[in-house]
Amino acid sequence: MNRERAAALGREPHGSSDDPDLLDFSANANPEVPEGVERAYRAAFEAARTYPPEPPEAFRRAAADYVDCDPEQVVPTPGGLAAIRAAVALAVDEGDTALLPAPSFGEYAREVRLRGGEPAFVDAERVLDADPSGHALAVVCTPNNPTGTAYDRDALLAFAERCRAAGAVLLVDEAFLGFTERASLAGSDGVVVARALTKLFGLPGIRTGFAVATGDLGAALRGARRTWNLSAPALATGEFCLRQDEFVRETRERVRRERERLRDALAERYDVAPSEAPFLLLDVGDRDVDRVIERARERGVAVRDARSFRGLDAHVRVAVRRPAENDRLLAALGVGGGGAGEGGSDGDGGVESDV
């Protein structure tokens, strides 16, 4: 990694608000956590007085069961982004190009540039039709952030085969796949899968995730992994969460139901992209995006400014939370009973028309 290049690269913008007075719809973490996870975290204190097991076999077995692969193929990482960095670092050398979807997670391009590579962007909706020839790496995010597009498994496998034939590593970011019924690509040859506990289990601050890869690629990821790269509490909570099948089922159903309710309501005023993720992308049309965001904040809600995603210039992204919270989002965006907006009161006798 080049020192000057790293110093020159700025940080990518992300969702999440630390304002306690705002209900946060700008980040996509589950507002619920599995019952018992706090006990699992606290119980790990005694284990934290010694180094974690190396390799952490119990965590690897839980992760393998979760995505249906061989435990030997699991490489524990401190969050999904660490898995992404490891894959990019092994695939991309100075002067290489990487096929990246757009709009999508901005960290892909940043990691490629850190290695001296050059992003080659392709429309996220047509990424599986792209030609990986000549590229060291191809990336697919499924469901894609921020559009919510999930890709057909057979089409993904066909793309993976084309990547293998072209000598390109395929990185599949499955950060949001747990919210769907779709099967993971974990264990597919030539593919690195990145997963995390951040989104589905509502634990972004624990920093627990893993990569999955086979063959020489898997061996390289295992060899590059730092010893003790996850703490004892991270391993314990990760293992616990990955076994919570009923929590996963309940979360999927709640998100599916609430996402469709939100989409139907928001479609009255905004162009809403179809989604299989725990978020929705809204095209606000000719409304001023800054004004939309500010008016939502004034009503106690934080939404994600999606203009930082490549190719989006009139968009915000909103998470799917619990029913009562989602009602507050609708009101803040001028939709639903009594909500501010065209034809709705702003709560002090006025009428708003710019939200």
Score class of each variant (00 low, 15 high):
residue 2 N to K: 08
residue 17 S to W: 05
residue 18 D to S: 13
residue 19 D to C: 08
residue 25 F to H: 04
residue 26 S to P: 11
residue 28 N to I: 03
residue 31 P to W: 06
residue 33 V to C: 08
residue 34 P to I: 02
residue 36 G to R: 07
residue 38 E to R: 12
residue 38 E to N: 10
residue 38 E to P: 00
residue 40 A to L: 06
residue 41 Y to I: 01
residue 45 F to S: 07
residue 46 E to Q: 13
residue 50 T to N: 09
residue 50 T to R: 15
residue 51 Y to K: 11
residue 53 P to C: 02
residue 57 E to V: 14
residue 67 V to E: 03
residue 68 D to T: 08
residue 72 E to H: 13
residue 73 Q to H: 15
residue 74 V to Q: 06
residue 76 P to N: 04
residue 77 T to D: 01
residue 78 P to N: 05
residue 84 I to Q: 00
residue 90 L to V: 09
residue 90 L to T: 10
residue 90 L to E: 12
residue 91 A to H: 05
residue 92 V to L: 08
residue 92 V to M: 07
residue 94 E to W: 11
residue 95 G to P: 12
residue 96 D to P: 02
residue 97 T to M: 04
residue 99 L to E: 13
residue 100 L to D: 05
residue 102 A to P: 01
residue 113 R to I: 15
residue 113 R to P: 08
residue 113 R to K: 14
residue 114 L to E: 15
residue 116 G to Q: 05
residue 116 G to T: 10
residue 116 G to A: 05
residue 116 G to I: 06
residue 118 E to Y: 06
residue 124 A to N: 05
residue 124 A to G: 04
residue 138 A to S: 14
residue 138 A to D: 11
residue 140 V to S: 07
residue 145 N to D: 15
residue 145 N to Y: 15
residue 146 P to W: 08
residue 149 T to G: 00
residue 150 A to T: 13
residue 160 A to N: 06
residue 160 A to M: 10
residue 162 R to C: 00
residue 166 A to D: 15
residue 168 A to D: 13
residue 169 V to L: 13
residue 173 D to P: 00
residue 175 A to H: 11
residue 177 L to Y: 03
residue 178 G to V: 04
residue 178 G to R: 04
residue 181 E to T: 12
residue 185 L to I: 05
residue 188 S to A: 14
residue 188 S to D: 12
residue 189 D to L: 05
residue 190 G to N: 10
residue 195 R to V: 01
residue 197 L to N: 00
residue 197 L to P: 00
residue 200 L to A: 03
residue 200 L to F: 04
residue 202 G to V: 09
residue 203 L to S: 02
residue 203 L to A: 07
residue 204 P to G: 06
residue 206 I to E: 10
residue 208 T to A: 13
residue 209 G to R: 08
residue 211 A to G: 09
residue 217 L to Q: 01
residue 217 L to N: 03
residue 219 A to G: 14
residue 221 L to W: 05
residue 221 L to H: 08
residue 227 T to S: 12
residue 228 W to Q: 13
residue 229 N to D: 15
residue 230 L to W: 05
residue 230 L to S: 11
residue 231 S to A: 14
residue 233 P to I: 07
residue 233 P to T: 07
residue 236 A to D: 10
residue 237 T to A: 15
residue 239 E to L: 00
residue 240 F to K: 00
residue 242 L to M: 03
residue 245 D to G: 11
residue 246 E to H: 11
residue 248 V to K: 01
residue 249 R to V: 10
residue 251 T to I: 06
residue 251 T to V: 04
residue 256 R to G: 07
residue 258 E to A: 02
residue 260 E to D: 14
residue 267 A to I: 08
residue 272 V to F: 09
residue 273 A to G: 04
residue 274 P to N: 15
residue 275 S to R: 02
residue 277 A to D: 09
residue 279 F to E: 11
residue 286 D to V: 09
residue 287 R to I: 05
residue 290 D to C: 02
residue 291 R to Y: 02
residue 294 E to K: 06
residue 297 R to P: 11
residue 298 E to C: 02
residue 299 R to A: 11
residue 299 R to P: 11
residue 305 D to L: 03
residue 307 R to Y: 05
residue 309 F to R: 02
residue 310 R to P: 03
residue 314 A to H: 14
residue 314 A to L: 03
residue 316 V to P: 04
residue 319 A to V: 00
residue 326 N to C: 02
residue 333 L to E: 04
residue 335 V to C: 00
residue 338 G to C: 03
residue 346 D to W: 12
residue 349 G to M: 12
residue 351 V to S: 11
residue 352 E to L: 09
residue 353 S to P: 05
